[in-house]
Nucleic acid binder design. Sequence first.
DNA 1: AACCTTTGCGCAAAGGTTTGCGGAATTATC
DNA 2: GATAATTCCGCAAACCTTTGCGCAAAGGTT
Lengths: 338, 338
Amino acid sequence: MSKRHVSLKTLAQTLNVSISTVSRALRNHPDISAELTQKVQELAQELKYSPNPLAIGLLKDQSNTIGVIVPDLVTYFFSSIISGIESVANEHGYYIVIRCSYESAEKEKECLDNLLKLRVAGVIMCLAQETQDYSHFSNLIEEQVPLVFFDRVCRSEEVSTVVVNNQEAARQITRHFFESGYRRIAHIAGPAQLNITQERIQGYQQGLAECGLPFDDSLLVHCDLSIPSATEATQQLLALPSRPDAIFGVNDTTAFAAMKEIKRQGLRIPADIGLVGFTDEFHATVVEPTLTSVMHPTYEMGREAGLLFLKQINPQVEVAPQQTVLTTQLVVRESSVK
Amino acid sequence: MSKRHVSLKTLAQTLNVSISTVSRALRNHPDISAELTQKVQELAQELKYSPNPLAIGLLKDQSNTIGVIVPDLVTYFFSSIISGIESVANEHGYYIVIRCSYESAEKEKECLDNLLKLRVAGVIMCLAQETQDYSHFSNLIEEQVPLVFFDRVCRSEEVSTVVVNNQEAARQITRHFFESGYRRIAHIAGPAQLNITQERIQGYQQGLAECGLPFDDSLLVHCDLSIPSATEATQQLLALPSRPDAIFGVNDTTAFAAMKEIKRQGLRIPADIGLVGFTDEFHATVVEPTLTSVMHPTYEMGREAGLLFLKQINPQVEVAPQQTVLTTQLVVRESSVK
DNA sequence: AACCTTTGCGCAAAGGTTTGCGGAATTATC
DNA sequence: GATAATTCCGCAAACCTTTGCGCAAAGGTT
């Protein structure tokens, strides 16, 4: 096995001074003579000394790691958000420890417990879609452990959050469909309890109302964000006696699954069915027809979550939880213009 | 701020026994009476005691975290590998700390240094495409720090690695093109120094030879795996006096970019140009035409990397570096069959 | 020359955990 | 009833770092 790292003790013994002197010299403490300070720093560099974060963490009872919990590690949406978090963390000397809840409430709780046992400085997370009980966050909130939710949020009076303007985006999509001549506009929504689902449904309904279209609840179906589920939802819509002529998917993955199913049934996009997604990943420009989608600033969402987190980490003043709303932008492509 | 966690000291003071007794009781040490052991364990449970990993790490000079360095956090390829690593790590009580090298050799070195400063137990990584000098791994190798490379590897006599059968896969692709009637088969390869590039080129050339086709080096172009670069490579191929009738992309992203450019130039797939990718992400089934691709077992690659790592972490016997080769499978879809 | 200030460094405690060793109290042995 | 063996627990060191305090030597002031 490898021998231990070089420590202050190593430096101190080599130079025949005390550990505390070495510690001070490295931090340029005025108590230490310039001469000795230089000698210490040179030796430290030569021996590649680096302070042991475990010891520092132990002393201060906090580490320089941020726990990150996502429902899914694989999709572009989350990986690009993680990328944003990582970049901010990196810039500020933090490290991110990632765990995946696999959309399970139970696993989410387990991840949270584990990360806290690891003594992370706090947690940045997106709720699992299963999660309906939010009581496991009470401890964190009471003990003021830094906590940030992104995209799927809860208890936002007590916790800082980053979301996008879901309602407005959904409203724009609906109006865009209307303006393109679509009249029976369906929505494949996410799990009902999620804020993103609710807000997008509201925007959808608002858009319908503004366009003078009735809300037909057979045109509103839910899915669990998985591909099979999205496919099934699409089948359900296409099997309606009075078929929709446009579908708004809760995200791009859902829209891609819908696209696949629509084509499989021999229907044409956008002629027979208009289609719009949400996220605007690269593949939206590759599929045929290219997919109209709402540009979700995922990377920025990650960065913003990281920044909100850092605000809580060293509160100069008592900071109140802060709600950031990022704006999206509708990117119109072929799939929604007849 | 939050007060400190409950420690052995807390338990000891509450029960009026010594810290060492509490420590032993929790680990069921025979020196401690059954009665006291039970009392201690009950209190620990009640107070939700969990041992401080920082203290243990300090004592043993190792942590239960694994450093993971990837060139890119966002693409499916890496995020699904990370998912595999995370699942193995999780199963064995480890946590993964992720850093991104952004394909830069300098950043890669920086990530490595930072992770080592963090006192990770070891590192699982994929080389940045820029990296040509492999000397920064010498320290790790000498000091027997657990190290695993996946996909893009180096120094594989000294370091455990996980790769796929790149050469064979490329050979199969080439033969598949030939059997589908394509004769001028081009290859958009990755950066020349990468093992995956070299191996796939070898397989490509082997396949050509087996089919009795000449190797035309104007049909072999390189890209840096970015979308603009892949687009440019495609343009270069399509502009050749004697245009290729088939393109084998080094990965799916490259193939998608090529598909977009081929369509933009008004050429048809697979009639005018056959196309095959490498990775087989979900979107291969969504694009039109659906993309023939090599199924790369990314999640398994992550899991295998994790397992190789764990083998090194507590070497019962002196373990030699181990090379794992995973097998791929060609998935034929519309893009390569006339 | 006596006193005060400054300079430059070390001691020791704290944080949480593990573990070899020692020691008191109980039980077993003759 | 004395000695030996066992049972059960505490002391203290070690891992590494930071920091308040103390202290000696040097310099400065009257």
